[in-house]
Amino acid sequence: MSMDKEAIQKLGRLSRIALGDQQAEQIADELSNILRWIAQLKEVDVEGVAPMTSVLEAHAHPRADIVNDGYAPKRVLANAPQEIRGYYIVPKVIEQDTT
């Protein structure tokens, strides 16, 4: 499996990391190497093997529905690069998209 510059740029878009052309080319080579190395996993017969999502043979212990946090906007905003009237501030967003 080898990767080209375009594929790297697409990954850069997905992961929101700006990449110069030259940089993308270099990373393409590095990642191609790593992918070739990783490809040895294809040798392993995983037929019928369950994927491991956690090493712990445990399950969730939900917490009680109690309000015991929040009400400390200063604590939350303490490290904000930009803040106005208690809001985080970002460059204006034109498109809208919530999920």
Binding site: Y87, Y88, V90, P91, V93
Partner: peptide, 15 residues
């Protein structure tokens, strides 16, 4: 929530 009508250059974020 993002608010886009508070400022000409910025969006305001309320979590």
């Amino acid at each position: 929530k993002s608010m886009h009508d508070q400022h000409p250059q910025y969006s305001f974020i309320d979590l």
